[in-house]
């Protein structure tokens, strides 16, 4: 179990050795800041408009996370594989699942750190509105984003385990994320049928926009994201196994 922690810690630390992490932090901060500023100005001009965090969260989910997650997870296993360090990890007394969970956790930690930086926006907003903002809404927004990131990082780590090349992993992950974003779109074609329900259920974002973002925390959404994460990590484990047997 301790191994998970050592691997996560190393993964997290090494993210900050590459410029990618800083670029992501900067772009996130600037983009959100810019739209935050627009939101405030809008509220100043139209007195009846109540500024909220909802637009900030939407923007964070798409496009920011859709690009940031693949950029962070791409190297997790692909790079170990390419540099030969996977041979070291797989021959040291570390179980495959400890390695996978450690890698995933390291990536998750990075986004938790990013989210902590964005906490400044709701706090600033709170001071600007007389009666304060609804922190329940902020809480559910953040909870949903964390769950979403957990599932996205799962996909990223799994796909990274399939490749030797991080750029290939980057684009493949991006593709899969977008697939799970638009998967609910064809649901309208099958309106009312089971297919529509399944397609809508599979979508990564359907479980966020109408629920967490509007302050509704439902067990079924939490279970969706957690089982999504578990499944992707399991697939990553299988992928490492297959790699050995090849």
């Amino acid at each position: 179990m301790k191994n998970i922690w050592y691997i996560a810690k190393k993964e997290y630390a090494s993210l900050f050795n590459s410029p990618v992490a800083y670029v992501i932090l900067l772009v996130t901060f600037l983009t959100l800041g810019f739209f935050f500023w627009i939101e405030i100005n809008y509220a100043v001009q139209y007195q009846q408009y109540v500024p909220s965090m909802s637009n900030t969260f939407s923007l964070l989910v798409f496009p920011l996370l859709f690009f940031a997650v693949p950029a962070i997870t791409m190297r997790s296993i692909a790079d170990e594989n390419k540099s030969g360090t996977l041979e070291l990890l797989l021959t040291s007394p570390v179980r495959d699942w400890e390695l996978i969970i450690g890698k995933w956790l390291g990536c998750l930690f990075f986004f938790l750190f990013t989210l902590m930086v964005t906490l400044i926006y709701p706090l600033v907003l709170n001071t600007m509105i007389d009666k304060g903002i609804d922190f329940g809404l902020v809480f559910s927004g953040y909870l949903g984003v964390i769950l979403l990131i957990s599932a996205m990082c799962g996909i990223g780590v799994f796909i990274s385990s399939l490749f030797n090349n991080q750029i290939a992993a980057l684009f493949a992950t991006l593709g899969v994320l977008i697939l799970f974003w638009i998967i609910s779109a064809p649901a309208q074609l099958f309106q009312g049928s089971v297919t529509a329900d399944v397609l809508t259920y599979l979508s990564l974002t359907e479980h966020y926009y109408d629920t967490f973002l509007t302050g509704i925390i439902q067990l079924k959404d939490i279970i969706y994201y957690l089982s999504f994460t578990a499944l992707t990590l399991l697939m990553a484990n299988i992928s490492i196994d297959i790699r050995r047997w090849r």
């Binding site: 301790k2 360090t85 007394p93």
Partner: peptide, 28 residues
């Protein structure tokens, strides 16, 4: 087992000390 593979498995972005500490931790 202690193993030195053919392609020496090193993390280029770590210091020598950190690398060995990482391996020492994994080896408990």
């Amino acid at each position: 087992i202690g193993y030195l593979p053919e392609t020496v498995p090193l993390y280029n972005d770590m210091t020598v000390f950190d690398y060995l500490m990482f391996m020492a931790n994994l080896r408990n």
